[in-house]
Design a protein around this nucleic acid. Structure first.
Length: 571
RNA sequence: CGGUGAGUGGCGCAGCUUGGUAGCGCACUUGGUUUGGGUCCAAGGGGUCGUAGGUUCAAAUCCUAUCUCACCGACCA
């Protein structure tokens, strides 16, 4: 490709609204342009990258025996009414009417359509398992589109749906998809983690998210430094390390005037917060036959709402008691609540349960106890996993310690079970001739989001540094003063032809621009290899190669350039 | 949906407080200059100042309404 026949569309400045690197760089490098909130046009360079990602996804899906189809973006509402999601989905579902005033939706996902399809096409267990996918535009009327292409309303998703006679078969395909996803992200060249998204209470994981690690990510990922364990911070189970030490001290009452927080208590008593416990009062569930529950955490730990609300004694969703309610029920204000002698059931976090001789509120304003111990002093309580996992905790699989980093969710795989097949009565006849509802799995990848995530992970102050596998071009050919130097022009044209003959994707900057402009544009666009042709090196029949990622420069003989690139880039 | 802020050539902004008929940088066009890291000079083209209404001799500027967008919180690939 020649720049003079191409649309470069680079910019010096990025729009004020672009907050994160990938958004700024996608606009500055001329990859996308915004049409309206959450709606983007893909310019030629961006589209080349997008297509590379699509091809890798497609290839790995095919290798995993998934079969490509294409379903409509516009879907009739009655399917959504049948699945219950016409009511359930809410305003993110864009609803439209046709000329006959019939209701349709712009598909945010395709479970309904695929299930209806399979219901009609598949009638025997012999045709199973079946795994169908498409790479296609989705529309979700996001509350707040953000970060450019990262969270747009219209986006491209690879969505796959598998159908099975039983759970065992579903599990096999699920594992296969898990592996396919790992292959995809490895091939693209991204640092990622497969994250446990929901450790179902019955039998193992039923959902994994795939996250690309990047500072700008919106999710906190906890992962082991020794194993491949990874989970959302909210969902990661915490196992308490160590054992409780024996009680040495007696309970004493100390004055802690005006100390409302653990930090203030710890400061007044000159101890670290981890030697204190904090007691939080939450609303109890109906079945608990109490009004409130006291939750006890170590002073330096953070309550995990999700875990707490899953406990049978605790109201779901979690509701913290107000200070007035606490005062009314227990005769004490925030700051001096404690488990010792409190008139409600007590839930103790696993880590807090390992504390001994600890400090806690005395249930009298302005006073705390020291030297408190479970069992000896606090007798009736339940232990549960109630806090957020933290950096440095032991990994839940027992291997290594936990690190926490930000992640961008780019993929999600699910074992759906029979939710949709049941609602739309999708089943087959079994070997014994009985009707059997199918088990389903679904597997999504945010194709457009991968492009943004790749930039988040691979850029510097000059621009994008594309991984080879998804770079819009492998090589930028940059001639110095081609319009003045006949020699430079000749070599440039010859190399350009050679690269094309060798099947290398090359961008030949034949604009009549100053060198600085060309260097800056090619670096901003992020092409992995630059070949610079200048009078300077032509006497020795050499040109210069520069690696975008490492910045390394070296001189190459003109005759060797193409081979050098094809060997290095694995073309 | 709640909170905050902004709408002025393609992009980034100034002008608004104190009304007087729109300006700067980038980009674009032309000519010259320069040519291994976003040259420099000159000339030029392009804007219903988000929209509607009002106040006024006069509105980008003041008032009212409305629309849109962005940023911060709960959802998602």
């Amino acid at each position: 490709m020649r720049t003079t026949e191409y649309l470069i569309a680079t910019q010096k400045e990025s729009p004020a609204e672009a907050e994160i690197a990938s958004h700024q760089l996608m606009i500055r490098a001329g990859l996308v342009r915004k049409l309206a909130s959450g709606l983007y046009t893909w310019l030629p360079t961006g589209l080349r990258v997008l297509n590379k990602v699509k091809e890798i996804v497609r290839d790995e899906m095919n290798k995993a025996s998934a079969i490509e189809i294409s379903m409509p973006v516009v879907q009739p509402a009655d399917l959504w009414e049948a699945s219950g999601r016409w009511e359930e989905y809410g305003p993110e579902l864009l609803r439209i009417k046709d000329r006959h005033n019939r209701d349709f939706v712009l598909g945010p996902t395709h479970e309904e359509v695929i299930t209806a399809l399979v219901k009609n096409e598949i009638s025997s267990y012999k045709q199973l398992p079946l795994n169908l996918y498409q790479i296609q535009t989705k529309f979700r009327d996001e509350v707040r589109p953000r970060f450019g292409i990262m969270r747009s309303r219209e986006f491209i998703m690879k969505d796959a749906y598998s159908f099975h006679i039983d759970h065992e078969s579903l599990d096999q395909t699920y594992q296969r998809m898990h592996q396919a996803y790992c292959n995809i992200f490895e091939r693209i060249g991204l640092e990622y983690r497969a994250v446990i998204a929901d450790s179902g209470s019955i039998g193992g994981a039923v959902s994994h998210e795939f996250h690309v690690l990047a500072e700008s990510g919106e999710d906190d990922i906890a992962f082991s430094n020794k194993s491949d364990y990874a989970a959302n911070v909210e969902l990661a189970e915490v196992i308490a390390s160590g054992e409780r030490l024996s009680a040495n001290e007696d309970v004493k009452t100390v004055d802690t005037p005006n100390a409302k927080t653990i930090d203030e208590v710890a400061l007044q008593l000159s101890v670290e917060p981890e030697y204190c416990v904090k007691t939080l009062i939450v609303k109890a569930s109906e079945e608990s036959a109490h009004e409130y529950i006291a939750i006890v955490l170590r002073g330096d730990h953070v309550l995990n709402d999700i875990k707490a609300s899953k406990h049978p004694l605790v109201a779901s969703p979690l509701q913290m008691a107000s200070e007035d309610e606490v005062n009314k029920a227990f005769g004490v204000n925030f700051g001096s609540i404690g488990p010792l002698g409190i008139a409600c059931p007590i839930l103790v976090d696993r880590s807090a349960a390992n504390c001994s001789d600890f400090i806690c509120g005395a249930n009298m304003d302005g006073q705390h106890y020291t030297g408190v111990n479970f069992d000896r002093d606090v007798k009736d309580y339940d232990v549960a996993d109630l806090r957020n996992i933290e950096s440095g905790d032991t990994s839940p699989d027992g291997k290594g310690t936990i690190e926490i980093r930000k992640g961008i969710e780019v993929g999600h795989i699910f074992q759906l079970g029979d939710k949709y097949s049941n609602a739309l009565t999708c089943g087959v006849l079994t070997e014994s001739g009985k009707h059997q509802t199918l088990q389903m799995g679904c597997y999504g990848i945010g194709v457009t989001r991968i492009v943004a995530a790749a930039i988040e992970q691979n850029h510097d102050k000059f621009g994008i540094q594309w991984p080879e596998a998804i770079a819009p071009f492998k090589v930028a050919l940059i001639p110095m003063n081609m319009y003045k130097s006949q020699r430079v022009a000749e070599v440039a044209h010859r190399l350009y032809a050679d690269f094309i003959a060798a099947g290398v994707e090359i961008l030949f900057d034949d604009r009549k621009e100053r060198p600085g402009v060309m260097f800056n544009d090619m670096e901003l666009i992020g092409i992995p290899h630059s070949i610079v042709i200048g009078e300077r090196n032509l006497d020795n029949l050499q040109v210069e190669h520069k690696n975008r990622k490492t910045g390394e420069k070296q001189l190459l003989n003109i005759d060797e350039v193409v081979a050098f690139i094809t060997n290095q880039a694995g073309v």
